[in-house]
Design a protein around this nucleic acid. Sequence first.
DNA 1: CACTGTATAGACCGATCGGTACAATCCTGG
DNA 2: CCAGGATTGTACCGATCGGTCTATACAGTG
Lengths: 193, 193
Amino acid sequence: MEHATLRDSAARARLVAVAADLFYRKGVPNVGINEIIDAAAIARMTLYHHFASKDDLVLAVLAQRCAERQQGFAGAITRPRTARAKVIAAFEHLANVAAHPGYRGCAFVNAAAERADPDNAVHQLVAGHKTWIAAQFEVIARAGKWPRPRLVAQQLLVLWDGAAVGAYLCGNVEPVVAARAAAISLMPATRRR
Amino acid sequence: MEHATLRDSAARARLVAVAADLFYRKGVPNVGINEIIDAAAIARMTLYHHFASKDDLVLAVLAQRCAERQQGFAGAITRPRTARAKVIAAFEHLANVAAHPGYRGCAFVNAAAERADPDNAVHQLVAGHKTWIAAQFEVIARAGKWPRPRLVAQQLLVLWDGAAVGAYLCGNVEPVVAARAAAISLMPATRRR
DNA sequence: CACTGTATAGACCGATCGGTACAATCCTGG
DNA sequence: CCAGGATTGTACCGATCGGTCTATACAGTG
């Protein structure tokens, strides 16, 4: 085995963490290489040793964030037992995230907004993340034996993204709360007939 | 009166139109001054004669787009008579917009994603535009005498933004169609009891 | 030991960024 | 015709961009 790997170097990890923070807070194009290496206290060449280019770093940052987000999502929906409760928990999870000060909307949506071309790796990673969320919703819907699980999942995703955008733009969690309520309306009513 | 105004100059108009197109297609930070003046066939100094800075131009572009969008929205919802039909028409209007090739999502959401600070004029203009849409929905809801018009309007806006994001990310209008269906579910059922 | 891959520091590159200076025009209303 | 704003062309500015290069130091493994 090679020794210190190159994949899990401490420098690399700090680089990704610092860049993730800066990229999210200020927007990818507004953060230069110099700023990143200064904030991370890392030599310039170390960055280019681990990443071929800034784009490469952006991609790594997004990939990690993707893993984190999906982990958080999955964690939020495991506890509740019913399908209905799982969906509600998911939106409450989003509310918690969006309530955090400095929330600037979905990092993936923002990243996609900045990178224009649709065949870009960033764009595809973002699309993949969204597809994953929709798939999660669809699994829940099927487990609950809801009618039209695909459609419901898609609608829940729309609510999800719209809530994130809204929470960012108006600076509070109201849109997420509204989206949660809308999600409840969209789900089949608890059977009581 | 001063002669040629300065507000409605042909050069200025072309500048705004060309910049609007470039900004939307490539993202604001990815379009330089040089590219704009080349595409518009306008002298560099002419740009800075009409706009104090690039930010100023961005703002002017967004302001015009805001007017256009609101005009389009208002136009789409005038025809239908019932509140329910108005909302459906609004989402069909969005579907038409999103179906256009080269659709890259809501220009306002994208612009807000690129400009980070929440007190930025761009951010506020975007927030204002979204507030306007929500207000339109609320007017409709009140006219239809729906219960909780504020909440419903907010939910419709969430669907609106989420649909735009989704249509951009997956490159088709499916999310808009799903959002339309969700909107129908959220509206009070046509009374038949 | 030698080898190998990680990390450091800083000089340096061409390109482009947003913005300015200056001087020469054009065009139109009085 | 003339005044004055609109427009043009181009040279120029300092700053920053992403990225390269070189040389050196360090640590763990064979």
